[in-house]
Design a protein around this nucleic acid. Structure first.
Lengths: 193, 193
DNA sequence: GACTAATACGAACGATCGTGCTTTTATTGA
DNA sequence: TCAATAAAAGCACGATCGTTCGTATTAGTC
């Protein structure tokens, strides 16, 4: 009962890394079994279907994301400092290892692929923008933002910058994108102050 | 010599639509041949390899993009009107049919897939952000933007908003995203005015 | 209308896909 | 320590992948 969960965890670690490079759809059970030094059937038995595997990877990634981004951010002081921390944590998350943010890649991949996987990604992304809106809300509470602003509008503009960063960093490999990102955030914050 | 080019064009029309839904990597020659009512080998003969097919699809999409977005935009009066037209044209482009913008999806897919296809996408995206910077430059020329701004910074922030729109529209299916987009653009323009 | 080249097709290749079943090997609790 | 159980491997399946080849059909040229 113990060993099983252990291997499953290890599989998901490798799979999550693979998914951050090739996307959830780009993963094959054969390739994953080789990467984990297991037999295809032995690995498969842990998930019963590929869809379940994809869902498990998502769930695993969501856990890591909470641990590395969401929770640490909420521990910082509310307002603008928290917003800046959030940006830093997210950049660290999406630039770790060779791949990018699993959710960004999966979002593009599954927008037009109906099923449980898309539903889960959609829910995760919705949670994420809701969380961003709450961060703005807390900035209002402490007086860093005006109280007549639209928190969801802030969430949209903030997340857009992250998506832009992701493309500039990963595909275009623009060398000065971190500075651009910082400057854009400064201006964004100024608009809501 | 005529018939061949004709079928090839038709294949690319269908393939481009398919790629806007499933991504360049999600396309299979078998599925594409069924969608075009051709035999697998008959279709394959037009491209010699899958990589060539993907490159041809990209080239085809680039042509459509120029025709429907880039060229019409450059025919409008320079400055803020041109920027607003650009936004409209791009939204029309990326929301046509069921799929999304081929380049956005392919950018996410191929960031970590080395090869000619990635190189081509990267070049296209670089051209695109360069074009955006030139639009900002022309806004300076006519006096709509200050002359001390960073055009590439504008390109980054503008494109980020498009990427955000793409996700909100396609995955989250947010009903009020067009208004949010408009408001974000207003603020963005105000920052450079 | 015949000849030639372009175009499309059918069949098959080896490889890999996701997924079952059966057997062997590890792990566990008494 | 030993039986009970969980985990992993082995093997095979039908389907599909990208690709090749030989053949048939079409098209354009004289």
């Amino acid at each position: 009962m113990k060993k099983g969960a252990e291997t499953k965890f290890h599989i998901l670690e490798v799979a999550t890394d693979m998914a951050s490079r090739l996307g959830l759809e780009g993963i094959s059970i054969g390739a994953l079994s080789k990467a984990t030094h297991m037999s295809k059937s032995g690995l498969f038995a842990h998930f019963q279907s590929k869809e379940n595997l994809q869902l498990a990877i998502l769930e695993h990634a969501i856990g890591i994301f909470a641990e590395k981004v969401a929770i640490p951010t909420l521990k910082t002081t509310a307002g603008i400092p928290r917003i800046k921390t959030l940006l830093e944590k997210w950049i660290a998350w999406s630039t770790q290892s060779t791949g990018g943010c699993v959710f960004v890649i999966a979002s593009a991949d599954f927008s037009d692929r109906p099923g449980k996987v898309r539903d889960r990604i959609r829910a995760q992304q919705q949670d994420w923008v809701d969380a961003l809106a709450r961060v703005a809300q807390s900035a209002i509470r402490v007086g860093d933002f005006r109280d007549d602003i639209d928190c969801r509008q802030f969430a949209f503009e903030f997340y857009s910058l992250l998506l832009g960063f992701h493309l500039y960093y990963k595909l275009l490999q623009s060398p000065d994108i971190e500075e651009r990102q910082k400057e854009a955030l400064e201006r964004l914050i100024a608009n809501y102050r």
